[in-house]
Design a protein around this nucleic acid. Sequence first.
DNA 1: ATCAATGCAAAGGTTTTGCAAAAAT
DNA 2: ATTTTTGCAAAACCTTTGCATTGAT
Lengths: 154, 154
Amino acid sequence: MEQDCFKKVLRERGLKVTNQRLLVLETIAGHPGEHLTAEEIHGLARDRYPEIGLATIYRTLQVLVELDVIDKVSFDDGFVRYELGDAKKEKRHHHHHAICRKCGKVISFEGDLLETLEEALYDTEGFIVTDHEVKLTGYCRDCAKEKQEDGRSL
Amino acid sequence: MEQDCFKKVLRERGLKVTNQRLLVLETIAGHPGEHLTAEEIHGLARDRYPEIGLATIYRTLQVLVELDVIDKVSFDDGFVRYELGDAKKEKRHHHHHAICRKCGKVISFEGDLLETLEEALYDTEGFIVTDHEVKLTGYCRDCAKEKQEDGRSL
DNA sequence: ATCAATGCAAAGGTTTTGCAAAAAT
DNA sequence: ATTTTTGCAAAACCTTTGCATTGAT
């Protein structure tokens, strides 16, 4: 059970197991593939626990990031977003994102290209990689089309 | 001359060539390899142009990003940072960053691993990549050592 | 002369913090 | 019983916006 593991990790660090912390984790885990903001998580969590405060969400997210349970991602739209970390489950997944500069649409995909890079970084700098993110920016199919049309009309 | 090219790009888009815009670009160009925040750029720009306002910095940065002259990067420390874009100079450089989770140190390095990924993305999704960033998080040499020691002592 | 860009100050929106009350160990 | 965590509200923070003035074409 995923939850027991989380409880154990909390206790190992001397942190307390609270309903709020379990709920935040469950909320994120319940929306796989999405990139929720703190406020979105707050909204979802309140469905099941109406008195939970936004500050608790933020504080819990910090804890979860620190414990490597979730990852922070940012698509440069002014929000920090969170998604379930891969580190715990398998050795390495490899979630990457392509972000449209025009409409902001995010395409997620997987790929395994970074092993050699990460090894080289350890060899040359002694840097130990615990997570990675590949962020591609550009134009999605629809916006690329529009952009081409705009160019013609100008 | 880099500046004449920039002036041309501005005029092509119907934007005006102002001292402030030139100064912001020069400021960023004058600090290669650094990842300046808006406020840092403001501070540096004011040395040469004391009356320049922070709002102008932000507005100029937006323009420069839109013109592909600079790139936005974020190291999840609450600041958006800017660096000179590579797109203009050569076909593709490939600046990547390794960010220490503990001390925040950023190691920049280069690598060319993404061509196949970008081609695949175009083939499957029609997504046109204009920029990319590889962000590795982990522990730098010093912090990795500390972390190991912390673990022992607990 | 026209229209965009600037500077200032105020507003906006996300995230953090202080503190008393509540909950977990 | 002790210590952490919560919730609320206020504060802090970076960034954007409104508007009159200045500056570029």
